[in-house]
């Protein structure tokens, strides 16, 4: 009897704690989702709010992607076009960065994990130093360099910059991951007559897939979430990412809160899907260097 009591008190405490933690983490997200499916009248009602919309609607999403308000700063583009180009740019840039970084990091990570050469430590240090380096140190001159190269306001320019930013974490991930793989498999393949490149491609690559998935997802997420760099290096719909487009709306027409909320929810969908379905890979990647495995 006493143990049952003790057990239920324990559960009561744990679930109360879990409830409080979830309210803290999710309440703001809940509200933006509610805002996006509320009608304008309900959303702006005061002083009492409609915590659960009585007439949930997807009209805000339809509006923001079809008619929507005009985006006034540029004076030319309707909201919907800007949003669609923003989503397209973000998708193109994030996927390209993830692919580029995963491949480059796989190559470099393999060398750090397996090969022996002088200067290995300094070279590794050279790449890893980027992580704590404040971005402005390179940004000021990078901007003028990219302007001269004609790479501002282009997806390619953003892929190269954001890809470089994502690289050190991915290299660290791949190096750590490959180092923990059994070395004998590669050696056996090599002795059996596979070339060095065949070994890499046919033996290492399949084994390294979980690590590569982490590198891929983390690079994708960090690029999708990036704001300051795309904001500085883009100025038209040619390369403005979705986070930049969203920040333009904030200043421009704060009155259309329900549509603003719908646009915001759209930006949040890819990260949330990644977090819910690939949490293991994502968390391993994002907290790399501190937690292993």
């Amino acid at each position: 009897m006493k143990t049952i009591m003790k057990k239920s008190v324990r559960y009561l405490l744990l679930y109360t704690g879990a409830f409080v933690a979830l309210i803290w983490a999710l309440a703001p997200i809940y509200w933006i989702i509610v805002s996006s499916i509320s009608t304008r009248t309900e959303l702006l009602s005061k002083p009492y709010k409609h915590w659960i919309p009585t007439h949930p609607t997807l009209q805000n999403f339809i509006d923001v992607f079809t008619t929507g308000q005009k985006y006034r700063a540029g004076g030319t583009l309707p909201t919907s076009e800007l949003l669609i180009s923003g989503l397209r740019n973000s998708m193109v840039i994030s996927v390209s960065v993830a692919v580029l970084v995963t491949i480059v990091a796989l190559l470099a990570g393999y060398v750090f994990a397996r090969m022996k050469f002088q200067l290995k430590d300094p070279v590794f240090f050279y790449i890893m130093l980027l992580m704590p380096l404040p971005i402005w140190v390179s940004l000021v001159s990078l901007y003028f360099m990219m302007t001269r190269l004609g790479l501002t306001d282009s997806n390619l320019g953003l892929i190269l910059i954001l890809g470089t930013m994502a690289l050190p974490l991915a290299v660290l991930l791949m190096a750590t991951f490959i180092r923990d793989l059994p070395y004998e498999i590669e050696e056996a393949a090599f002795i059996d007559g596979a070339s060095r490149w065949q070994t890499l491609w046919l033996v290492i690559f399949p084994l390294v897939l979980p690590g590569a998935s982490s590198a891929f997802l983390v690079s994708f997420l960090n690029t999708w979430n990036a704001y300051m760099i795309p904001m500085i290096f883009s100025n038209t719909e040619k390369s403005q990412t979705i986070t930049v487009v969203l920040s333009l709306f904030i200043g421009q027409y704060e009155v259309a809160w329900e549509q603003m909320a719908a646009a915001t929810v759209f930006v949040m969908i890819p990260p949330i899907l990644l977090a819910l379905f690939f949490q293991r890979y994502l968390v391993r990647g994002l907290s790399m260097g501190a937690v292993k495995g």
Partner: peptide
């Protein structure tokens, strides 16, 4: 899984979320 959501959202979105 749910408690880490704020961390994986774009910070720029979080700023706006709270502004609202």
């Amino acid at each position: 899984a749910l408690v880490i959501l704020p961390w994986i959202l774009p910070p720029v979105v979080n700023g706006f979320l709270w502004n609202w």
